[in-house]
Design a protein around this nucleic acid. Structure first.
Lengths: 220, 220
DNA sequence: TATATTTGTTAGGTAAGTCTAACTTTTATA
DNA sequence: TATAAAAGTTAGACTTACCTAACAAATATA
């Protein structure tokens, strides 16, 4: 049985491994920052997780989840994303409100609850941010990871997910009426600053920054 | 902000105050037993709760919730019973499975969640065991507290709630096809051992014990 | 490559919530 | 009412998860 805190460390490690596509290892400081604790605290926990065979690492080395650790991390991520979907779809929470509450709900222990919730929601494949929800067997639905910024002038993309899930970005998206499924046409690329002129569905044209375009995933 | 543990103590005290209708005070041992901790632990926590003005008590004296403590306890009870209702009604949990999971869910911090959940469930007044769900303002829906054992021969009662929520009893009720709303007619009272012959809806007559009849609330 | 910077570890400490064992107060009963 | 039993408290210890400060190793850079 894992403690609340241990679960959080495993999830953090899993998330970091997704972020660094090529090298799935994480560092102590990186991990501590992600969890909002001091590096010394992370070192302590790492020893504990190693003891329990959930991570492999040695002093001053990189941290890697074991199969067991990864399995546990995925279970927590599954719960997190299912709860986010529940809050968004059934209880009318907004895009930027779901995360905080799901952070708590993901720790509820009841395999039956998770699977019943999954069923109740109709076995969704993606959460409200477009992130894939791990299935009961641990598989992750895959999706095209094209960024809006990778499109060329004239191309149209349908929003599939957000890369940045910060409140500021999510609220900005809501203001622009962009949600999962929205079609965006790239009209012009501005070489000077990397910004681009786009058309969101049938709304008037507007310009968005390079940072913005690098935070949205689309499907061509 | 209350800790997970503090919340549990407040809820326990509230429950004990309901049990002892006439004298709402509780004792240290009683409270410890209810929470599954040793009396020494309860004493420690009591000091802390007193410090926070959530209970009034003095050494070797009886424990009483303050208004503030009661308010907090009711909030937790409200969450507990709403979640039980959710699990039972929406996720097909059985009568005896809801409690354990609701014990965890009741600690999720999000006023918005509670109220949205309440709305989603259609503002239910009673939980799956027939216990009243405190409203957002703290009010408790009231109901007739007649026990099946108080009926006389010939009278019929409609089940409104269970007094005993043990797994054994709940599973027995399920076996007998008794649920909230079921009509039970008392056919005969056996003075010898307090047992009674009853008819459950249209099922064949059967005999139940005094203990059984003292664990079911009905409405005449 | 020597040194400065970054990254990670160790040692020692704190707070919450739990325990056991010994003690004190209150209550029940002979 | 004296005493035995029950109820409640205190002291000291443990575990988990966190911290700060000092130190050690690894990496980057002059």
């Amino acid at each position: 049985m894992l403690s609340y805190t241990e679960e959080n460390y495993l999830k953090a490690l899993l998330m970091l491994s997704f972020q660094n596509e090529t090298r799935p290892e994480a560092g102590t400081n990186e991990m501590a920052a992600h969890l909002g604790v001091k590096p010394a605290t992370a070192t302590d926990m790492l020893k504990k997780l190693k003891e329990k065979n959930l991570v492999t690492y040695q002093k001053y080395g990189k941290i890697l989840l074991t199969e067991e650790g990864k399995k546990n991390g995925i279970t927590i991520l599954r719960k997190h994303r299912l709860w986010e979907t529940f809050l968004y779809e059934k209880l009318d929470f907004s895009w930027d409100e779901v995360h905080e509450v799901a952070e708590q709900l993901e720790h509820i222990q009841s395999p039956k609850l998770v699977n019943k919730l999954d069923e109740f929601l109709g076995f969704p494949e993606f959460d409200p941010h477009g992130d894939p929800i791990p299935k009961a067997n641990g598989e992750m639905p895959s999706f095209e990871k094209t960024l809006l910024s990778e499109l060329t002038a004239g191309e149209t993309g349908k929003v599939t997910a957000v890369k940045d899930t910060s409140t500021l970005f999510l609220q900005y998206l809501e203001k622009l009426n962009i949600t999962i499924g929205t079609n965006i046409k790239v009209l012009e690329l501005i070489d000077f600053d990397g910004s681009l002129n786009i058309q969101i569905e049938n709304a008037p044209n507007r310009s968005v920054s390079m940072k913005f375009a690098g935070s949205l995933y689309v499907k061509r």
